[in-house]
Amino acid sequence: MAAITTIITGATSGIGKETALALAKKGHALYLLVRDVVKGDELVRQLKQQTVNKEIFSVKCDLSDLHSVYTAAEKLKSRLFAINVLINNAGGMYPMRKLSHDGFEMTFAVNHLGHFALTMHLMPLLQKGQARIINISSEAHKMGKPDFDDLNSEKSYSSMRVYGAAKLFNIYFTKSLAEKYRDKGITAFALHPGVVNTAFGAGAGGMTGFFLTIARPFMITPEQGAQTTIYLATESGLHTKSGTYFKKKKLAKVSSAADDAAARERLWQVSEEILMAHPAGL
């Protein structure tokens, strides 16, 4: 039987790395989309040493650069016939406002826009593979209040506020994928991995940094944090739950804002418009 082909972003550390290791052990053919090629190649070497799996590869992809996303997608399309699992795992929180290569606020660019572009560019292969698309969200989405008139946070900036909005966008994207591609064999899931002890949020100042420092001794390990992602990537019989949000491998409630169908559709339209206006296109 052919190996399951799985794409993972943000696999060089934290829960992404633990997810990659677990799926490598299960025999998935893994394509690790990495910003740092040196780290990516080292991870490939480590995973091959730790498992009998030789079908592990790294592909350069900087989610804050839409041209890099497009180039990575084209490389995958030239090598693969179908994709069975796409794990949009990479994310980031930035203590100070900064802009992506394309001029978008970095939290929005990395957590949502880059993954939206990647998923859309790979959609032909995802449909061929009847794929599961797994988006790493967070309970922080419950703090999210999208402002479509200020997606670049030019009026004001708070790292937790924009992060909460980005995690809410992950749930919007999940629900939209499940709805729009239901008849194409696509299923989509969002999840909260838990409060994981990783380098995430390193350098955060103010109250965010203070709370991260206090909470760190009580955080779960990256291996524990990866369990819901691994479950959603491998468990059978989940197709009826497409479009839902999981925590600790169980269905979980989302905020009332996450059920706003009009906001969900607006995010999709805005994201499409951004990509169509970019030289890489859709």
Score class of each variant (00 low, 15 high):
M1C: 03
T9A: 03
T12M: 08
I15N: 01
G16S: 08
T19K: 04
A20M: 10
L21C: 02
A24P: 03
K26P: 04
L30V: 12
L30H: 12
L32K: 04
D36T: 13
K39T: 02
D41T: 08
E42Q: 14
L43K: 05
R45D: 08
R45L: 06
Q46V: 06
V52M: 03
V52C: 00
E55W: 06
S58D: 07
K60H: 13
K60S: 04
C61L: 05
H67Y: 15
H67W: 13
H67N: 13
S68Y: 09
V69P: 04
K75G: 01
L76M: 02
S78V: 00
S78L: 04
R79A: 06
A82G: 01
L86Y: 07
N88P: 02
N89L: 10
A90T: 08
G91C: 03
G91D: 03
M93L: 13
M93F: 04
L99T: 12
S100V: 06
H101E: 09
D102A: 02
F108R: 03
L113E: 04
H115S: 01
H115I: 03
F116R: 04
F116H: 05
F116T: 03
H121P: 00
G129P: 01
A131P: 00
I133K: 07
E139H: 11
A140N: 09
K142F: 10
K142H: 13
P146Q: 09
D149L: 01
D150S: 02
L151W: 11
S156E: 14
Y157C: 00
Y157S: 00
Y157H: 06
Y157F: 12
M160W: 15
V162H: 05
I171L: 08
F173T: 01
L177A: 00
L177E: 04
E179G: 00
E179A: 07
Y181R: 00
K184W: 10
I186S: 01
T187I: 12
F189N: 01
F189D: 02
A190T: 11
L191G: 07
P193W: 11
T198V: 05
F200A: 03
F200I: 09
A202V: 12
A204R: 13
G205P: 01
G206T: 15
G206R: 15
M207G: 04
F211W: 15
L212N: 13
T213M: 05
T213D: 08
A215K: 13
I220V: 11
T221K: 09
Q224Y: 06
Q224E: 13
G225V: 11
Q227Y: 07
I230A: 01
T234Y: 14
G237M: 10
T240E: 15
T240S: 11
S242C: 02
S242H: 11
S242V: 11
T244C: 05
T244I: 03
F246Y: 15
A258W: 13
R266H: 14
W268H: 09
S271T: 09
E273Q: 14
A280P: 04
G281R: 10
L282G: 01
